[in-house]
């Protein structure tokens, strides 16, 4: 079976000489389709760097990185943009919606950059918003939405292109507990329908929802625990939404 994510012995060094910072010291991580992985670690453990590499926002100093079978490091700027557009859906801690654009327009944006026709774009964006339960908020701008609603718009935007990987960076870090449960419930349901999800987090509650937990410390993987089988259901499905 082809891996969605295949990181082999990746290292990342910032700076050079005596001031060099080793953010990653040889990380290997394979993710199969349908898996729901939580990457945990304290700040400085290298999890943000790993997420940047997985998200094609950065390239490793050494080591190989394949996303859905594609060696991203070898691609030029334009193709990397295409990979980010088609293969990855980003969910950020601070939502990162574009201000002064309605929820619908924000969700349509990846499709616009992907060259999808306006009518089709609208249909898919509405479907994605419906999936996160925001069908009645499509015309609202980010500043008219609550944090939880904004994050759900961001999830809809991440999903709309049907990416190979949903990559979330501390998705509940800026949310209250109710909204956190909302968002985690959405992730559980997405996982149950076979989506591949990688969540970066430092909260144990969030990690408990994943099928597999990977712990990082000082740029190395120190623990890799499986909570549920890849082709099974996520362990906490149903609890969050209940």
């Amino acid at each position: 079976m082809s891996l969605v994510l295949d990181v082999r012995d990746a290292t990342k060094v910032y700076g050079a000489g005596e001031t060099a910072v080793h953010a990653l010291r040889g990380v290997s991580l394979q993710v199969e389709p349908g898996d729901y992985v939580a990457i945990m670690g304290a700040s400085g453990s290298g999890k943000s760097t790993l997420m940047n590499i997985i998200g094609c926002l950065d390239v490793p100093t050494a080591g190989r990185f394949h996303l859905d079978g594609v060696d991203v490091g070898a691609l030029d700027d334009r193709r990397q943009a295409v990979v980010r557009n088609r293969k990855i859906g980003f969910v950020f801690q601070s939502f990162n919606l574009i201000p002064r654009m309605t929820a619908l327009m924000n969700v349509e944006l990846p499709l616009a950059y992907g060259g999808v026709k306006p009518a089709e774009r609208r249909r898919r964006a509405l479907a994605a918003l419906d999936l996160v339960g925001l069908a009645d908020r499509v015309g609202h701008q980010p500043n008219e939405l609550s944090g939880g609603q904004q994050q759900r718009v961001a999830i809809a935007r991440a999903l709309v292109n049907a990416p190979a990987l949903l990559l979330a960076d501390e998705p509940t870090g800026a949310l209250d507990s109710t909204s956190t449960l909302d968002v985690l419930g959405i992730f559980d349901r997405l996982s149950a329908t076979g989506r591949t999800i990688v969540v970066i987090t430092h909260e144990a509650d969030v990690a408990e929802h994943a099928k597999r937990v990977v712990r990082l410390r000082d740029g190395r993987v120190i623990e890799d625990t499986r909570l549920a089988p890849v082709d099974g259901l996520p362990p906490r499905l149903g609890e969050a939404t209940a």
């Binding site: 700027d77 334009r78 943009a81 980010r84 088609r86 990162n96 919606l97 201000p99 944006l109």
Partner: peptide, 16 residues
């Protein structure tokens, strides 16, 4: 700058 970063992260090519 941040908006540009978001656009790039969701796949805006340099040309756009």
């Amino acid at each position: 700058t941040r908006e540009i970063g978001i656009r790039k992260a969701i796949g805006a090519p340099r040309g756009a």
